[in-house]
């Protein structure tokens, strides 16, 4: 697939006063507004049930906002129908919280799925074949260090490996925005750190814009403070003055509302008892 090298600085995702109501009278998302710009890494924190997944699904058009407006890559998509959404979604990579791997398909077929089914990759109105996309699939799987699992089924892999397959499937079509829903949930700390290392590596290599939902403050801390060094093939701490630090921003959700948006230092400085629970180095309250 052609990689568009020069991704200009633009607004990738924009929520304006977005609310979502289901059957209950209380909103699941309550007038949420934010913008994510290209090249940014956005960490989304919040307690279980605070609306993080719903927010992600609204950004993908899988759920409809009850009110408010959503823009993706400069396009107002609020009133798009399903057919128009398919085109928008083909530029967004996604890792679902519950995995979402097709368990009747092999790993290779799973990772090839977006390339075989998105209209954007059709050649002369025809789907590409598994053989023609195999190099891309292999490359995506090599990236997550699962290059030798092509013919396995998702049920034959461990939880951490399945997450990595999900990352490969999400990144194979070279998306402009990658949404990761709880990539480290339910994993041991070591595996969780390898997953975050992959995200940092992906950010370095492809300069993707990413939103990462997580419960672990360590994840946000790693993403905000480390970069991948391709020469040495390892992570290294960003110098305190590095402009890259500005690129990672944090958001905290509480009962459907966006209660915090800012950089790590600001998160650490917050005295709000709920917000400071998501900080790696919470400020001590002075009374």
């Amino acid at each position: 697939m052609p990689r568009n090298e020069a991704k200009e600085h633009r607004c990738i995702l924009k929520f304006e006063e977005v609310s979502v109501y289901f059957d209950q009278p209380d909103p699941v998302l309550d007038r949420v507004s934010f913008e994510i710009w290209s090249g940014e890494t956005r960490i989304i924190l919040g307690a279980a049930g605070s609306g993080k997944t719903v927010m992600m699904k609204v950004a993908l058009g899988l759920l409809k906002a009850t009110s408010g407006r959503v823009s993706v890559m400069g396009q107002d998509v609020t009133d798009f129908d399903e057919r128009q959404w398919y085109e928008v979604r083909s530029h967004i990579g996604v890792l679902f919280q519950e995995g979402g791997l097709f368990d009747s398909l092999t790993i290779e077929e799973n990772v090839a799925y977006p390339l075989l089914n998105q209209a954007r990759f059709m050649v002369g109105g025809k789907k590409p074949t598994l053989d023609t996309v195999r190099p891309d699939v292999q490359e995506a799987l090599n990236f997550v260090e699962l290059g030798n699992t092509l013919n396995k089924f998702p049920s034959e892999l461990s939880g951490g490996m399945r997450r990595r397959v999900g990352i490969a499937r999400g990144s194979v079509a070279d998306p402009d925005l990658f949404l990761y829903d709880s990539p480290t949930a339910g994993l041991d700390p070591i595996t969780a750190n390898t997953i975050i290392a992959l995200l940092i590596k992906d950010r370095e290599m492809r300069n993707t814009t990413a939103a990462i939902i997580t419960h672990r403050f360590q994840d946000g801390h790693l993403l905000a403070n480390f970069r991948y060094n391709p020469e040495k093939d390892r992570l290294e701490r960003l110098p305190a003055s590095s402009p890259l630090r500005e690129k990672t921003k944090f958001m905290v959700m509480k009962e459907g509302r966006l209660v915090f948006e800012g950089r790590e230092a600001e998160l650490d400085a917050s005295l709000d008892p709920y917000i400071s629970k998501f900080s790696m180095h919470p400020a001590k309250k002075v009374s």
């Binding site: 993908l60 399903e82 979604r89 679902f96 519950e98 979402g100 791997l101 089914n117």
Partner: peptide
């Protein structure tokens, strides 16, 4: 549905 495969289908280009 509960393993989000149906969401994944919609997200990856199939109805």
């Amino acid at each position: 549905k509960v393993s989000e495969q149906i969401d994944a289908m919609r997200a990856l280009g199939t109805d």
